[in-house]
Structure formats: structure tokens, C-alpha cells
Amino acid sequence: MEDPPVDAPASALSRFVLRAALADPGHLPELLANFAVHHLGQRAATAVARAREEHPGAGDAELSAMVITRGRRVSESEGACVGGPFTVLVPFAFCTALLTQSRMMLELAAVTGREPTEGARAAELLVIQGVYGDEEEAAAALEAAAAARPDAPPGRITALWRVVKRMAHLLGVVTPEGRPVSTAVRVGQWVLLGGVFLIGLIAPLVWLPYLGYSYHRAGQELGERAWAYYRGEATAWPSRPTRPTRAGRARPAQVAGTLRTLLSLLVPIGAVVLVVATGAKLAGGRYPLLAIVLVTSSTAVGTIWYLRRRRGSTD
């Protein structure tokens, strides 16, 4: 598959990565890391150089905070809004958010004086994401992925499921496999994701608050971990699951975000229950009214979330 131009827009890059991942879903993290370095490394270096010019008095800590804030907000706005209105575009939205997070990590590397376009950055991205435990293991995996030639790609549905599942882990929409967490929390995350997906089939804008919150939380955590990593602190997750610890339990902010997401789901559900319970009809039938109620309530939830996100980004 021919690579897209280096200056291709983000949408074109996301489409390319998604097609490549569907052809070889087993090597998604390695493919993404290599692609990010080759196609986003120079953009990351340019962005950091521009930030230094625009903020000459800012130290590395201030620049890193700017990078993390920008990366988090871009992943929220682009990733959530792309996938929100149309559930079938959720894999594309995941891919867009992953590329945004990768660029954020490369920009943080640039802040600390590292060259974002160097191949070594790919292994570092995999370690920061918790895919591998150290750079040597990650580098070996990158070499193995480059040399691998799958005999035949899996069926499209199977490949899509594997890619979406791995993307959800990498993005932090659900807790990554290598991170200590209780079974109850992990099961609850997948149940919530499945519920949002099913409801999103008929009320798609409920994806907006769910993905927006997930990207906000995961992007902030990833940025802080990447910044600490490039400062020489050991913050990478273990490469193999370990016994859950207190650190793996749900935190108050996560509980609050989950409750907000559940509330966004309950709005359209409650509206439907109200229509059914009252026996209300439109044009002699119940289904036209149900369709209008679902679309209206879903739009209201998505609009409120979007306005809150927009107001927060300008504060």
C-alpha cells in the first residue's frame, strides 16, 4: 500500500492507518507508532518550534502543559465529533484520536530536546502507551512487525472487531490490558461501551459525551505520563497484567465521568419510556413519535456536551 504524502491532511492519514490496520490487525500498535514518527514527527517538531517563538519566556514545563492541553482538546473535538454523529465512523474517530495522541507524545519529546523524526521515538511511544515494558522489547517488536508478512488477512468483520478493541485499549476508552485494574472495573467499562454503542445505533449523538470524556481523561493521563517519561522518570505500565492494586481502582473523577455518561444515555431512554408509558402517538402511530423523540433527545445531549466543551476550551 502506497504511503500518503507527508503533508497529507489528518483525515487522509487516519484513513490510511485504518486500512493498513485492517489488513494486519495484530500489529496495530507497531504500525501506528512507526506511522506517527514518519508522518507526524516533522509536524511535531515544527509545532514546538513555533510555540517557543510565540512564548519566548516559557520554560519546558509550561510548553509541555500547552502541548498536553492542545493534544487533549484536539482529540476531544476531532475524535469525538467525527465518530459521534455516525456510529459507523467510530473506528475512524478512534484512529483520528490515536494519531492526535501520538503527535502529542512526539511534541513532548521535542520539548525535551529529542528529534521527533528519529526511529527511536517509535519504540518510546509503545512503552509510554504500555504496550511493551521497555524500549528494547518494543524495538524488537517493531522489527518483527516490519518483517512479518501475513499469509491472508482475517475476515473484514473479525479484523474490524480486533482493530476497534485494540484501539479502545490504546486510547484509554477502556483500561489497557497491561494496567492493573480490578475485574469489576474492566467488565463495567466494556458493558458501558457496549451500551453506548447499542444506543448509539438509534441515538448516535450520545457518543459525543462518552468519547469526549474518555479522550479528556485518557489524553491528560497519557500526556502526563509521556512528559514524566521523557524527563527520565519510570512511569510506564507493566507489559504484563499484574494483581490489581488500589491504584487500579476507579477514582472519583472516573466515577463522576461515568455517571455523566450514564446520564447522557438515560435521557433518550427516559424519553422513550415516557412516550411508551403515556401511549402518546403522532399521525396515528407511535413509531414516528419515538423516532422524533430519539433524534431530539440525542441532539440535545450532544449539543449540551459540545457547548460545554467549547466553553471550557476558551476559559
Rank of each mutant, 00 (worst) to 15 (best):
R286W: 05
W227L: 11
L40D: 01
P209S: 11
G133W: 09
I199P: 00
A49W: 08
V185T: 11
T303C: 13
E107M: 12
P176K: 07
V111D: 00
Q42M: 05
W227R: 09
H27D: 05
G133K: 12
V48K: 02
L170D: 00
A291F: 15
A159F: 09
A93L: 03
T69F: 08
V164F: 06
V276E: 08
L211G: 01
V301K: 01
R50C: 05
R50Y: 06
V301W: 00
A120Y: 11
I292Q: 14
H169P: 08
R43T: 05
E221Q: 12
T183A: 15
L22E: 03
V173R: 04
G188N: 11
G302P: 09
Y230D: 02
V173I: 15
E115V: 11
T299H: 07
K165P: 01
L63S: 01
Q220G: 14
I202R: 03
R249W: 11
V6E: 13
A123T: 05
P238V: 15
G83F: 03
W237I: 02
L22M: 09
T96S: 06
S298F: 03
P85E: 06
L201H: 04
L106V: 02
E137P: 04
W237H: 10
A271C: 14
A20R: 13
P244T: 07
M104I: 11
A33F: 03
L40H: 03
G223Y: 05
I202S: 01
W237L: 11
R166C: 00
A140F: 09
W207V: 04
G130N: 04
T261F: 01
L32R: 09
L265Y: 00
R73N: 11
Y215H: 15
P5S: 07
E30K: 08
F35H: 05
A147W: 12
G119Y: 04
C95L: 12
A61W: 10
E62T: 13
T258H: 03
A21C: 12
E78L: 13
L294Q: 10
C95N: 08
G84N: 02
A110E: 02
P180Q: 11
L99V: 07
L89N: 10
G285E: 15
P268N: 08
Y229P: 06
G41I: 03
G71T: 03
L294T: 04
R260E: 06
I68E: 00
V74C: 02
S214C: 10
P176N: 06
Q254G: 06
P153E: 14
P244Q: 06
R166G: 00
V295I: 09
Y213V: 13
A168I: 04
Q220T: 13
V275C: 03
L274P: 01
G200P: 04
T96M: 10
V301T: 09
A109Y: 02
T183D: 12
L265V: 15
D60E: 13
V131G: 00
A256T: 13
A291D: 10
A36W: 03
L28Y: 10
L18R: 03
T87P: 01
A280I: 12
M66T: 10
L13E: 02
L160A: 10
P238L: 14
I157R: 15
L289K: 06
L28W: 09
G83R: 01
E118Q: 12
R260T: 08
L125Q: 01
D7S: 09
A8P: 07
